[in-house]
Simulated assay, not measured.
Amino acid sequence: MTSHITSGTISAAASGTWTLGDLSVNRLGFGTMRLPQYGEALVPDAVPRERDQAIRVLRRAVELGVNHIDTAAFYFSPLRSANELVNRALHPYSNDLVVVTKVGPGRDTSGQWLPHATPRQLRGQVEENLRQLGRDHMDVVNLRIVGTDSIAERFGALAELRDAGLIRHLGLSNIHEHQLAEAQAIAPVVCVQNMHGIGATPDQKRLLRVCGEQGIAFVPFYSIAGSGRTAGVTTTDQHGTLHAVARAHGASAAQIRLAWTLHQGPHVLAIPGTGDVDHLAQNVAAGSILLSESELADLNSLSE
């Protein structure tokens, strides 16, 4: 259904603010993963999105108060790179715009995934992000991890780049709790990006809680995608409870998922992505939805 709260005049400021280190951001941000292409994200045969359309979305996001942009050099499709689009749309960057990238994985020019970067290769990845974005330093760089191995050497390499002035703050992505502690012994961690949404597992809920206790921003990915999150596609949202809450607020199921996400704690941020201006306005407006305790309890009881 079409929401009655998506006039396009609601600002991302309605979601509240959080501080990444010394950088204040509105809790409703924007993720660029789906911006370079139509359909599924990060696949070699993705159909490129029109550049002008993607640029309009990015500029409209900033007009709507979004000041937290999440991107990566490995977000690209044939002809389109998320970083290039961000640069084209938003450079020169305003002083209050926080651009966050992630390093660790890589993709070759055909889009195929490469092994995770070594500590030495991480510097090249950071420099590539800086070049593509037209910046002399990154506000935040997240180290993306797969697996449970030690991250000390890789995170230490990024900490050296922070000391050299190429990075302002450090974060982590797709981690386990013990890896957060390992990183914190090396350098401060300002944010953790992990999968989380309605129906989250106990381990996912625990990490969100631990971040809150330590004053670390928790930034869920695939918070809208629901049960289709691992394929990068949105769930069909068959939950009657979810639809009932949505109807009560004149909102869509996706908006309620975003609102629920932001209700998980003041340290929780949201970075939904879209290539459509109307969907962007709906996502931003979700930051103004206030859910009751009973609605939250009903949503918390759902599983994916």
Rank of each mutant, 00 (worst) to 15 (best):
S252Q: 00
W113I: 03
I151Y: 08
Q282F: 02
Q264W: 06
G240D: 13
T2L: 15
H169L: 05
S227D: 08
P188A: 10
T6W: 05
S288Q: 04
Q53R: 12
I10G: 01
Q255W: 12
L290E: 13
H178E: 12
I216C: 12
P119K: 01
V192S: 07
A41W: 13
V268S: 04
Y38P: 02
L290F: 06
R247V: 04
G39T: 08
T241K: 11
R209F: 04
A231M: 05
L269Q: 08
L79H: 08
D298H: 07
A117S: 14
T148N: 13
P105I: 04
P266K: 15
V99H: 03
S110N: 13
A89L: 04
L133E: 12
E40A: 04
E40C: 00
C191V: 15
L90N: 03
F155D: 01
F30G: 10
P36L: 06
C191W: 00
Y38I: 13
V219C: 15
E160A: 13
T17N: 11
R49G: 03
T32M: 09
L158M: 02
G104C: 05
G106F: 07
R229V: 15
A270P: 03
D96Q: 10
W18N: 05
R162F: 07
T148C: 03
S227C: 02
A14Y: 09
T230F: 14
T19K: 14
L64E: 04
A253L: 09
L280Y: 09
I5C: 10
V284Q: 10
P220F: 11
T101G: 14
P266M: 13
Q255K: 09
L302P: 13
I186T: 07
A82C: 04
N67R: 04
N129V: 01
S77E: 01
L130A: 05
A200H: 13
G21P: 04
T274M: 03
W113K: 09
H169A: 07
V126M: 02
V126P: 07
P220S: 03
L85N: 06
I151D: 09
V219P: 01
A152W: 06
G147M: 02
T274C: 05
I271P: 01
Q121W: 10
E153T: 02
H68M: 09
S294E: 14
L296H: 06
R154D: 08
Y38R: 15
T261K: 05
G104H: 08
W18I: 02
Q132M: 12
N83T: 04
P48R: 08
E213M: 00
A297V: 09
F218T: 02
I167T: 12
R209Y: 06
T71R: 07
T101N: 14
P119V: 00
I151W: 06
I216K: 13
L23G: 01
H68Y: 07
K102H: 12
R34I: 04
G29M: 14
E213S: 00
Q255P: 07
P36Y: 06
S110K: 15
L280W: 11
I289W: 14
A253V: 11
N142E: 10
R80W: 07
I271D: 02
L64M: 14
I145M: 11
S3T: 01
A187D: 15
V57C: 11
R209L: 00
I55Q: 14
G147F: 02
F30N: 12
H243D: 03
Q112A: 14
G147I: 01
V245L: 12
S77C: 01
N283K: 11
D22Q: 13
G212M: 03
L296S: 09
L20S: 06
V233M: 11
Q282D: 14
